[in-house]
């Protein structure tokens, strides 16, 4: 059961071991740890233009909503969602490639 309707934790502990690093390191890391959605998404939208087209941005966030909202943002804005990784200190890193 993935239902966690009443969970009170902003940053649940890591649920799985992080996958091995795939691809090149991100050109820009945006630290949105401790920020509630939609702020991580606003920060991503603001700053993705700082990297050249084809490069990867990483957003670090610990609001669980980001796990759904970052991929949804990529779909809506035609950017490429590369992967999600679990951070050792809690939270997640989301890798997004700038498409345009």
């Amino acid at each position: 059961m993935r239902f966690r309707g009443r969970a009170k934790h902003a940053a649940p502990p890591a649920e799985s071991t992080p996958p091995p690093p795939a691809g090149p390191p991100p050109a820009l890391v945006i630290d949105a740890l401790g920020r509630k959605c939609p702020i991580p998404i606003i920060m991503l939208a603001e700053r993705i233009r700082e990297v050249p087209v084809g490069e990867v941005v990483a957003v670090l966030a610990d609001d669980a909503a980001a796990r759904t909202d970052v991929p949804a943002w990529c779909r809506m804005k035609s950017q490429e969602f590369v992967r999600e990784e679990t951070l050792p200190q809690g939270g997640w890193g989301f890798h997004i490639r700038r498409n345009y």
Binding site: G5, K8, C37, A64, A65, T68
Partner: peptide, 18 residues
């Protein structure tokens, strides 16, 4: 009454904020 995003929107993979 919940601090979690909607489990419905989450399961659909659509934007949970706004």
């Amino acid at each position: 009454d919940t601090l979690r995003p909607s489990h419905v929107l989450e399961a659909m993979g659509v934007l949970t904020h706004g």
